Computed example of a mutant assay.
Amino acid sequence: MTHVTKERLLEAGLAMLLKQGYSDLGIQALLAATQTPKGSFYHHFSSKEDFALQVVDRYMMDVHYGLDLSLGNTSLAPVERVRRFFELSWEKYRQEGYLGCLLGGLGQELSGISPAFRDKIESCFVAIAERITGCLEEAQKQGDLPPDSDPREMADLLVDCWEGAALRSRLRRNSGPLERMLDFYFTAASR
């Protein structure tokens, strides 16, 4: 059974972590924003780190939903399905004020100081790339990608480029870097 209080904390925490990062996330501010007693927080989470790691898990549920929605849309060609996932992501970024990717933000902030976050975030990127690889393999079989291309390397590169573009989008507060990166990548990939 899902706990309403825990879900409320995770949802609020996701928005707060995205906006202000881990270091500036105050548990008291989170509790005030969700009108949650301190004891309830520690009933669900052993520490701030445990909380943030569970927020990442919650975020990944949304990412996998977007992947399912996009990659599972067989009315589109495989390459179009992959692009559609990133277009949906950029629309979400736009709605949130171009704050970017939670994984990228936390990865930049914490990967040098926290092995737990480094490992968690890297495993999330690997999972995303694995899902994309399957669709790119299908595109290759259909002749939409060159036969000598490596779908796994292409998926890893796409995720890497996306994260850089998401950072630039956050800095500029517009979608330009995301659009240009996708156009460049998918033009180059089909050659």
Rank of each mutant, 00 (worst) to 15 (best):
L31I: 09
S123L: 12
S70W: 00
G176W: 12
Y93A: 08
D68P: 01
G105N: 13
A155I: 01
E163F: 15
H64N: 11
S123N: 13
F186N: 00
R170G: 07
A77W: 10
T74F: 15
D148C: 09
R84C: 13
A32P: 10
Y22V: 04
R170K: 13
Q54D: 05
A189R: 00
L88R: 05
R81C: 12
G107T: 07
G72P: 00
L76P: 08
H43C: 08
A116R: 09
Q20G: 14
G143L: 03
Y42M: 10
L30F: 12
P115T: 14
R84T: 11
R118G: 05
S111P: 02
Y22R: 00
K6A: 11
L106G: 10
R118L: 07
C135Q: 01
L18E: 06
M16A: 15
R131T: 02
K6L: 10
P146Q: 04
T133K: 02
T187V: 07
T36P: 08
L53R: 01
E153N: 14
L136I: 03
H43P: 04
A32R: 15
F45G: 01
A52S: 08
R8V: 14
I128E: 02
M61P: 02
S114H: 04
S46I: 08
F86V: 01
I128K: 00
T34P: 06
L106F: 13
Q108Y: 15
L76Y: 10
F86Y: 12
K92L: 07
G97R: 03
L69T: 06
I113H: 13
K48M: 03
M154Y: 03
Y185K: 02
W162G: 02
E137I: 04
Y42H: 11
K141Q: 12
L76R: 08
D119R: 07
L53N: 04
E153V: 06
F86T: 00
K120I: 12
D50K: 08
V56C: 05
R83A: 14
T36A: 10
T5D: 11
R168Q: 14
I27V: 15
G21W: 05
A52Y: 01
S23W: 08
N174V: 08
M1F: 15
L10I: 08
A165M: 06
L71V: 03
F186I: 01
Q108G: 14
F125R: 09
E96L: 08
R180E: 14
A32W: 15
L102S: 01
R180T: 13
R131S: 02
G107E: 06
R81T: 06
A188I: 05
A129Q: 01
E179M: 11
Q35L: 15
G100L: 08
S114V: 10
L30M: 13
L30C: 15
P78W: 00
W162I: 07
M1G: 13
E163N: 10
G100H: 04
L67D: 00
S169V: 05
E80Y: 09
L106Y: 06
D119Y: 12
Q95R: 07
M1P: 12
S114P: 06
P147T: 03
S111Y: 07
R58A: 12
L53A: 03
G21K: 02
D57Y: 07
R8L: 14
L102I: 12
